Lab assay of single mutants.
Amino acid sequence: CHSECLGNCSQPDDPTKCVACRNFYLDGRCVETCPPPYYHFQDWRCVNFSFCQDLHHKCKNSRRQGCHQYVIHNNKCIPECPSGYTMNSSNLLCTPCLGPCPKVCHLLEGEKTIDSVTSAQELRGCTVINGSLIINIRGGNNLAAELEANLGLIEEISGYLKIRRSYALVSLSFFRKLRLIRGETLEIGNYSFYALDNQNLRQLWDWSKHNLTITQGKLFFHYNPKLCLSEIHKMEEVSGTKGRQERNDIALKTNGDQASCENELLKFSYIRTSFDKILLRWEPYWPPDFRDLLGFMLFYKEAPYQNVTEFDGQDACGSNSWTVVDIDPPLRSNDPKSQNHPGWLMRGLKPWTQYAIFVKTLVTFSDERRTYGAKSDIIYVQTDATNPSVPLDPISVSNSSSQIILKWKPPSDPNGNITHYLVFWERQAEDSELFELDYCLKGLKLPSRTWSPPFESEDSQKHNQSEYEDSAGECCSCPKTDSQILKELEESSFRKTFEDYLHNVVFVPRKT
């Protein structure tokens, strides 16, 4: 048989008469490798580009789960590009990614509803959504962080984005990388972005840091009482949809009607710091009717980097990364020049730590249904340095008659930039024990000054392991946590139920 035959053949030295091919099969003959313009397919066939392209389009058009959109890589027609490569849609070739590779997620039936953290986790790592997304989240724990972890990498949506009755959302900033909504599939009414009845939605994105392009379709905003109209108009300008909307697409009466839409800028007039305090004062603000001013709200939190936005980490279910302080308005003076500047002394802060701070007014709604208010920009203030805590785990070892090696770990709280350490030492008198000992005694162990690591005695271990207080009263049991108490109650309830079950099964009433 021919060298490319495997198993047997019907005619000697003829690659077209093989029972099976050793390498690849091409047009009725066995070959060692697939010549151009053919590609290896499933490690035994040679196919042309049209064959591989037909497989790709067949799966793409069917949208069946589990099928493969075949691509070409290293002269092979394979189910998908290997790690580190992405497909070129024009020629199906796998090309190296520039940075992290995109991950295209194809949605069944063309859309997916995100109504819980669990459903959001199914899209973790996706960068391109081939379909439409509907966000409908009523509640949950730590929602802002969970949504950002699972949806934060999405850069492109081919269909539309719909935010509907998501009472738990305060902001859409968890879509931190969303840059493009194509609108290839539109919501009824030709809408590519749809926001309806979101009672706590206050911000779409921080438009000073976020760009969003909507290729096709219109915007729809109705019944978002805490979303200011200025935020919607800003989205029109940034996304390129200005002029597409009709009169009733953006409701003037049901958007922002319960919001404090600040239209003035508060400026800080005085800032002073110490290692654990920050004193702030800002310019006074009074609405047209000074009785509408209820006070100020001061927001602050630790910020290692200057990239904080107002609604980071917030949701309507209680999660809030900001510390909020309510401040009463100052006494009002008739003389504008003698107006008191409101302020606040922030206490209990960490030394040498940068804080993000902003302040906003708290006002009631005027009778004319106009909203007044003022808010400052987010500023960054760093507390002063102070003395560091003591170095940890000092170790001293003498390696000769004239040297001592000293080692330690950095302090747990540096409280500033540590530039150097101060080492103090003092000579001590020799131990009298060394002169009084009889060095001729056998088995004498000389006193040693070398360091030995501390260890816990058996008594201390027994005390720590004991669940009861000892007789001397030195140790006591740790208080039980809520989960331990709940577990004990469940076990007790189970024992009672099981005992009742045994009584009912074992003891049967005697027939009379």
Rank of each mutant, 00 (worst) to 15 (best):
I157S: 00
I404V: 14
S171A: 05
G183I: 00
K112A: 07
E156M: 10
D292A: 04
D115V: 03
V117Y: 02
K234L: 03
T383N: 00
I154R: 00
D312M: 07
S376W: 00
I134G: 03
I157W: 00
R291Q: 14
F175S: 00
N200A: 04
R281C: 02
L345W: 14
I188W: 04
G139A: 08
C126Y: 03
E122G: 11
L294N: 10
V325T: 14
G348P: 11
D257C: 09
P225H: 12
L133P: 00
F221N: 01
I137N: 01
R179S: 06
E187V: 10
C317V: 05
I214S: 03
N136H: 10
K226H: 05
L201E: 03
I357M: 01
E231N: 03
V170T: 10
E156G: 04
E187Q: 06
S389N: 07
Y300S: 06
L392W: 04
F193M: 13
D249W: 11
L180W: 15
S119Q: 07
S158L: 14
N224A: 02
K253R: 07
F220Q: 03
L169A: 14
L107A: 08
S132A: 10
S400W: 12
I129M: 05
L293T: 02
N399G: 08
P342S: 03
D326H: 02
T215W: 01
P225L: 07
I278H: 00
I378Y: 05
V359F: 03
Y380E: 01
N248R: 14
I214F: 14
V359W: 00
D328K: 04
K242G: 12
D393C: 15
S166K: 00
Y285S: 05
S158I: 13
S119K: 02
P394R: 05
S376T: 12
S400N: 12
W205Q: 01
D289Q: 02
K267I: 13
T353Q: 09
W352R: 02
N334K: 14
K267V: 14
C317N: 07
C126V: 01
P391A: 06
G159L: 01
K177M: 04
S319N: 14
A149R: 08
V359T: 03
N136S: 06
E264R: 08
D377L: 01
E155L: 05
L153M: 13
R244H: 09
Y194G: 13
F299W: 15
K226P: 02
A385P: 14
T371K: 08
N200M: 05
S321A: 11
Q306H: 04
N190A: 14
K350V: 04
N150D: 05
S239R: 12
N198L: 05
L151H: 01
R244L: 13
N190T: 07
I405N: 10
L147S: 02
G183K: 01
R247M: 09
S389Q: 04
T113N: 06
R369A: 03
S192D: 01
L178R: 00
T361K: 02
S132K: 02
S400K: 09
E283R: 14
S260P: 09
L186H: 15
N200D: 07
Y380A: 02
Y191T: 09
I188Y: 10
L186G: 15
K267C: 08
H341Y: 08
R332V: 11
I214M: 14
K360R: 11
C126M: 01
L362V: 03
K177Q: 05
P287S: 06
N255R: 05
K409E: 15
V128M: 08
P287I: 08
I250P: 08
E146R: 09
S239H: 03
G373L: 02
T127W: 15
R291P: 05
L108G: 12
A144C: 08
A149T: 10
L293W: 06
G140H: 15
D384S: 06
L186P: 12
D276M: 03
T127D: 03
I157P: 00
F296N: 04
Q121L: 13
D393E: 09
L161K: 00
L265Y: 11
S192G: 13
G139Y: 05
R369M: 05
M235K: 00
S171P: 00
G110Y: 11
P288L: 09
Q121P: 06
W322T: 03
L265Q: 13
R244S: 04
K234G: 11
E122P: 05
T383G: 00
L392T: 03
L180K: 11
Q199A: 06
T361F: 03
Y160A: 05
I181Y: 00
D328L: 02
E368P: 01
L392D: 06
Y160H: 15
S173T: 06
P287V: 10
S192C: 02
K350I: 04
E148C: 04
K103I: 13
G343R: 04
G131T: 01
K337L: 08
F311M: 07
L219R: 02
V324R: 11
T364A: 15
L161G: 00
H222V: 05
N141W: 15
S171T: 08
L229F: 15
D377G: 05
E262L: 02
S389V: 03
S274H: 10
E302R: 03
A144Y: 07
L169P: 06
N150F: 14
K360C: 10
Y285T: 03
D384C: 04
L298R: 00
A303M: 05
N255C: 14
S333A: 05
E236K: 14
E302F: 02
L108T: 12
G313T: 11
W205P: 01
A259G: 12
L169Y: 05
Y160V: 03
P288F: 13
E109H: 14
R182I: 12
N150G: 04
L294E: 07
R244N: 05
K218Q: 04
Q199L: 10
F299G: 06
P410K: 05
N320M: 07
L229M: 08
F296T: 00
W286E: 06
Q382N: 12
R347F: 10
K226G: 10
K242D: 14
Q199G: 11
R176C: 10
N248M: 14
R124F: 03
N136A: 06
T254P: 07
I271Y: 06
G159N: 03
Y160P: 02
R138C: 03
T383K: 00
N211S: 12
R332T: 11
K267G: 08
A251Y: 12
D292I: 13
Q203R: 13
K162P: 00
I327P: 01
T113W: 08
T241G: 14
A149V: 13
R179P: 00
P391E: 02
Q354R: 07
H233Q: 13
I405Q: 09
G240T: 03
Y355T: 00
D312R: 11
G183N: 01
D315Q: 15
S400A: 14
M297T: 02
G373W: 09
I378K: 03
T309H: 13
L172I: 15
N130C: 01
A259Q: 12
V397T: 10
Y194T: 11
R138H: 13
N263V: 08
G243E: 11
F299K: 04
F175V: 06
D328S: 04
A120V: 04
I378S: 01
L133V: 12
H106A: 03
S208W: 13
I250H: 06
E231M: 08
L252T: 09
S116C: 15
L147T: 03
L169W: 01
Y194M: 05
I114P: 01
W344M: 04
S166R: 00
P342T: 03
L212K: 01
